[in-house]
Design a protein around this nucleic acid. Sequence first.
DNA 1: TAGATTGTTAATCGATTAACAATC
DNA 2: TAGATTGTTAATCGATTAACAATC
Lengths: 210, 210
Amino acid sequence: MVANRACIVRLSTYKNALKRLKALGFKKVFSDNLGDAAGVSPAQVRKDFSLFGVTGNKRAGYQVDDLIDQLGEVLGKNEIHKLVIVGAGRIGVALLRYKGFTVGGIEVAAAFDIDPAKFDQKSDIPILPLEELCSYVQENNIKIGILAVPDMSAQQVAELMISAGIKGILNFAPIQLRGGEDVVVNNINLELEIENLIYFVSAGHKVKKI
Amino acid sequence: MVANRACIVRLSTYKNALKRLKALGFKKVFSDNLGDAAGVSPAQVRKDFSLFGVTGNKRAGYQVDDLIDQLGEVLGKNEIHKLVIVGAGRIGVALLRYKGFTVGGIEVAAAFDIDPAKFDQKSDIPILPLEELCSYVQENNIKIGILAVPDMSAQQVAELMISAGIKGILNFAPIQLRGGEDVVVNNINLELEIENLIYFVSAGHKVKKI
DNA sequence: TAGATTGTTAATCGATTAACAATC
DNA sequence: TAGATTGTTAATCGATTAACAATC
């Protein structure tokens, strides 16, 4: 069996849960604890691990530190990954300033915009002209980009990113981006999430997870 | 069969796609077109519709306007829904100012924070003290809230929201919120999304959608 | 050792797809 | 009418869960 996105998402969730458990002083955990913390069944936890050769000790569960490390290995998170933000509007800038990334081995290298008023070449994380995107991405061997531009230009800018060599896009525009064979697009669509809440909150709809 | 979250998400996606098709001048569509626009199979489109009694015309496809209306009805989006934002940090404020909501029948009524420096009672969308959350939510009969506070206080603030009567939470904190029987929690976890991209972009992993 | 928990296989469950009769 | 597309049923596919042998 090949892992699907849902499974990889769970691996990340386990890792996050483990970090919190570690902060609470846990030295080892069982599939039971982890399932609880991640909101899935213990069988699911063990199954996911077995797909990736992540192992523990029969009868003795998993060593927290060791497990975090194994999961980081699978997820490619034991190195630092650089990314760019395209679009320095409200969302782009909020992400630019977001401190949470640094902890997780993710580094925002630079942002890009077309509006000269946004440019800020000297900052720690510079905001550069969009024309420089291509050369910057290539020179710094960046593979991941966050797309936070208005809907109308999203597809066009996405193509620019892809032509520059970006292979993974986190898309904030509420459209179905046409990527390409070897490009992964994950979407964050706020309105859709809220619409979804409205549906499940409205009278009488039974809640079903994920 | 009862619809699951994935199905409801698709209904929203169809509706968004329809609005774009409408803007392009389409008067009617076929399950084929819609599937393309939403990135799913035509059979899936028809199946989803049939679950909710959304119908078209044999041989003549679907009238765009009519379909948007039917979907809006199912999704409870033909009225305006108010929501509150809890936490007026970077993300909270970015959402506060986000214009996209107004189009979609979603209205941000107010935001809340504990920091007096953030208060702004006079603005169109006021930023109020957290202590007023409960009475505000009850007086305005609000059911949906966006949670954008730091991780450490997220669970506690969520419980406050729930006790005030909030039934649906869009959670930006990277933790598994313990909600409750009749509370729906949707999570947006930026780091997790990026981690996911890293995995699929890293050498040799085959891409599988959703 | 006895008891408990893993890792894995088999069983179940649910969602997607294919196919086709109905029909405009 | 003939052709095309819906709506729905049956078949397939995949993911989750249950169960249990292995074993620390």
